[in-house]
Structure formats: structure tokens, C-alpha cells
Design a protein around this nucleic acid. Structure first.
Lengths: 63, 63
DNA sequence: CGCCGATGTCAAGCATCCTTGTCATGTCAA
DNA sequence: TTGACATGACAAGGATGCTTGACATCGGCG
């Protein structure tokens, strides 16, 4: 599962910690998603998509 | 987290077991998602959306 | 140099997702 | 009535998501 969270976050000028705070999760969670350690839960994926005013399918692609 | 999986499945004339087979998960998983026991994982949510040619956001709504 | 913000990663623990197996109920057709 | 199918639900266990806490590295800046 590839995702474009890092690109979106950097474009928005946010740090991992900053985005994590906005999403209400830990910095390690954002880092783990960006580095592909694991996929976010569905509610978190939707929250990420909403944060960047886009859709889940735009951000997360099945391999 | 509300979802419209049951409506989509019934409109498609599928049983829970039939949909589960198409998605590669157990019947109990489909049942649990429909009855709101828990949310699907992100990859499963995407697979469900694709099965019904719609989007994750169309099917799953945060409360 | 010393400090700080940002990132990567690990470990341990808890929560959630998904499994197989099982049992109960309801409905419909033979 | 009997049997097959569909659904709802529970238990136990494995897999995954998320947490806090910690430690290391790197780059920029005083």
C-alpha cells in the first residue's frame, strides 16, 4: 500500500509532529504511515484525506 | 462510523457469504462491518468501495 | 563547539481487525 | 415437517494499528 502523505504534508509545510497533533495521533504513527510500516485505520485514513481536502483513494493506492 | 455496505450488497443481490468470498474475507467479517461491530481495515474498505464502483467516503461516514 | 528541531526506529503494551469454529434464529421451499 | 440457506452473535487466538518512552542521526544556527 503506497501513499502520498509525506508529499502532501511537506507541501503544506507541516512537520510530522505538527500533522500528528492536528490528527490527534502520535508522531510515530504519522512517521510509520509515511515510511510504510503499516496502513492507517479507516477513520485515520479518512481524517488524513479530509485534512488535505482530498480523498482516501487519491492518497492510498493498493500495490 | 456508519456505512452503507448492507444496502449496496442487497442492491447487488449478494449474500454476506457471497460478498465475503469476492472480497477474500470471512462471512463474519462482512457481517461485523454491516452490523457496526467494527470498521474494516483500510485495504478492505478500499476493496469494498471498488467492488461497488464507488468511493470509501461514499460508503463510510464518520459519526 | 553546543543546542535544537526534525526524522527514523525500537520495545512493550493495549486496542482493534480478522480468523475459524460453533450455536441459535428465521425464512422459504420441497 | 424437514432441510437448506441467510443472518446474528460469541469465544479464542493471531495479525495489525497505535500508544508512550527512549535513543540515534542529521542539519542548521547560536
Amino acid at each position: 500500500m503506497r501513499n502520498s502523505v509525506r508529499e502532501l504534508r511537506e507541501t503544506a509545510g507541516l512537520s510530522q509532529a505538527g500533522l500528528a497533533a492536528e490528527l490527534g495521533v502520535s508522531r510515530q504513527t504519522v512517521n510509520s504511515i509515511e515510511t510504510g510500516r503499516y496502513d492507517p485505520s479507516l477513520p485515520l485514513a479518512i481524517a488524513i484525506a479530509r485534512r488535505f481536502t482530498t480523498t482516501v483513494e487519491e492518497i492510498f493506492h493498493v500495490d
